[in-house]
Design a protein around this nucleic acid. Structure first.
Lengths: 335, 335
DNA sequence: TTGAAAGCGATACCAC
DNA sequence: GTGGTATCGCTTTCAA
């Protein structure tokens, strides 16, 4: 123990923590302690410190599934970039909770009653297959965390950092309407999660506000894309299609091409999803500011740490709209 | 405290740890404790545990510079993928030491005497600008860690997981020789780090063993690439060039093109560096099995944890040679 | 100014 | 089988 080295004892603590009580220590003693520290290569024990202080300067990152199978590196990776950046700037270390793998690729927060997250002062959670029950329990336990992406759990006020899909959907409809489009169609994914709900809300709101027409199955709530419907689209007077995913947009594009319909000359197509490099077409789409979201998530957690009493609120982050080559002015309406 | 809930006290500990002494606890008591745990949502305190056990099931990852400015995501990212994968499989969590940023992009292990790494049972260190003094100190402190990539420090036996650049260089020379090449040239980077030394060792060994000729400046120890030298190369009888980096190979290629020399028909070029997507040419080069290296690094750390007495040894990981379009059979020697 | 001592929460030894 | 209790290393009153 370093205390033996010098002559003092808990003075070591005062010297190390440095700040406030530093004044109360005479320079001579301070130097003696510092020398002893260097001499022995003394290093304070982190665990013991936390045990006392209830603070680690550790922020947890829990992903509900492993990062690595998600080969589209931009998904998790960019969030992590932002998280790392902010953690560094604020002097926090990051714990990646990897130990909690259930073996099936899913990861749980609670395993046989223990919550590894407690290791960290607070955590950022993210993932596509978020477990709502765990979110709720975490919230009930009063553990400080934010979730990246909106997740609603009845009876709990999950604090989230949310890409503003609703706003982006509105922006995209506005843009199309600005190009003279009046008759729209909507391509819907089968998924029923909050991010999709947000897009649908925004789309519906914009369509109604602007008095546009949409008689597509997707707008009525049916997901998917059939050949029949593409036929109908070609026959009908729609000039703009908004798709929830690149996947759907690509299938639509192929179908339209087969039928000799050109995009964007005959029909404009926009996508309510962030696109990535290597897609065949440069879609008009939205961008998820992932790095910024990661940064903001860390800030929110630190905020909750600093103000444990204030009720945690969710935060909306705007998604820029990315211009592509699939939207053009509406052609004259066909009969 | 959960102990109050039931009736017992340190029995809780026995129940929680579960394994060995579990038999010594009657089922009835066990159930009572378990019920209380569930009731209170009790979670054992990680810090307190470590304080006793000296074990966290936490593996640290220290990068000597921030991950995020290194936009070439494959560099750090793939190592991390492997690290994460293995950590999950072995039930460890990961600590990313981000707090130690010096503000200038560099990260230090020791900051004003404290070593954050102690938070984790052992650590994987990686980075291009590794600080050798810190490595040495860490080693002297007996802290269990491995470094990804070879780093030599006088007086310390740093355990490393090393991409076998030496073997890959030999393999590439062998391959060129197999294509009938006899007169070689070597393009050298100004950098003087171990990974380059390894390449140079391997190259020299292969050249000597096979009785090949190399009269290039790079082989003599001069780095860089001048127009004069390209002129000489074109006049001379060299048919194969081995470059330490894509950067050099690309400059060479441009120079050769200007002079009407074709690659690989007239001169074959191979690169002793892992190539990435988006290069103009598909270089014959080597591959760094980064994900595998990450996995292995974690295994090595766990190994050191399990056998603290065995002297830590470095591990060589073979680098596959990637066929490209820049190596072909040697043309007949020019006079 | 500085030292003694009481915990923080969990574990494990040791009596009962 | 079970419940006290010393202990891990550090911080923080409280006296001296």
């Amino acid at each position: 123990m370093a205390r033996l080295a010098g002559v003092s004892q808990s003075a070591v603590s005062r010297v190390i923590s440095g700040d406030v009580d530093a004044a109360r220590i005479p320079e001579e003693t301070r130097q003696r302690v510092l020398a002893a520290i260097k001499e022995l290569g003394y290093v304070p024990n982190a665990s013991a410190r936390n045990l006392r202080n209830k603070r680690n300067r550790l922020i947890g990152v829990h992903t509900f599934e492993a990062v690595f199978p998600h080969a589209r590196t931009d998904f998790y990776f960019e969030f992590l970039l932002g998280i790392e950046e902010r953690a560094e700037q604020t002097g926090f270390d990051l714990v990646l909770f990897t130990s909690t793998g259930a073996g099936d690729g899913r990861r749980r927060v609670y395993r046989d009653g223990t919550n590894r997250l407690n290791l960290a002062d607070g955590s950022v959670l993210l993932g596509v297959s978020t477990d709502r029950a765990e979110l709720a329990r975490l919230w009930n336990d009063g553990y400080p965390f934010v979730h990246i992406g909106r997740r609603e759990v009845p009876g709990a006020q999950i604090p989230c950092v949310i890409p503003d899909y609703r706003g982006a959907a509105i922006g995209i409809v506005d843009k199309l309407a600005g190009h003279g489009h009046r008759r729209f169609a909507y391509l819907r994914e089968p998924m029923e999660m909050e991010p999709y709900a947000d897009r649908r809300d925004g789309y519906r709101e914009a369509v109604e506000r602007l008095g546009l027409t949409d008689r597509s199955p997707g707008f009525r709530g049916e997901s998917g894309l059939t050949g029949d419907w593409i036929d109908e689209l070609v026959r009908g007077g729609e000039t703009a299609v908004v798709a929830e995913s690149v996947r759907l947009a690509e299938r639509l594009l192929a179908g339209l091409r087969e039928r000799g319909v050109r995009v964007p000359q005959d029909i404009s197509v926009a996508v309510l999803e962030a696109t990535w490099q290597g897609t065949s077409v440069q879609w008009d789409s939205l961008e998820i500011p992932r790095v910024a979201i990661g940064r903001i998530a860390v800030d929110r957690v630190i905020d909750m740490l600093d103000h444990p009493d204030e009720p945690p609120e969710s935060l909306l982050v705007p998604c820029p709209i990315v211009p592509g080559t699939t939207v053009a002015a509406a052609r004259e309406e066909r009969p």
